[in-house]
Amino acid sequence: MGKHVLLVEDETNIIEAIQFLLSREGWQVDTHSDGATAVDKVRNMRPDLVVLDYMLPGKNGIDILTELRADPDFERLPVLMLTARGQSRDRDLAERAGVSRFMTKPFSNTEVVTAVRDLVQLAQ
């Protein structure tokens, strides 16, 4: 399918895992580990989907998502948010900010891959 996925994550090992999983499914995966510059990265790269970590250095996932949704270009951009903070408050915040899908770490590989596929299909 040759679709672009941007993975915004600061944990090296998790980057490696997700990159492995999505590349195997045929996705072209770009990674970015700095929260502060993540929005610019999305603007430049214009990915088909963003996998977004919650806790990032510089700027957290919720703020990045809110900023993206404020831009008409990324209103409908599928965003899969992953978080290691297992609190329900965070899910509420993310949904209010307009997240497409919210998953808690540790995740099941299958679920992540399925979610990415579904979200991209839904967006088309």
Binding site: E11, N13, I14, A84, K105, P106, F107, S108, N109
Partner: peptide, 29 residues
């Protein structure tokens, strides 16, 4: 307390994420 729990959760879940993900990869691939 919330911040602490959030932090603890994050600190614990992050390594566990890698462990789970890679162990699934090893198992399923």
């Amino acid at each position: 307390k919330d911040a602490f729990l959030g932090q603890i959760s994050h600190e614990l879940r992050t390594p566990m994420t890698s462990i789970r993900s890679f162990s699934e990869i090893l198992r399923d691939t």
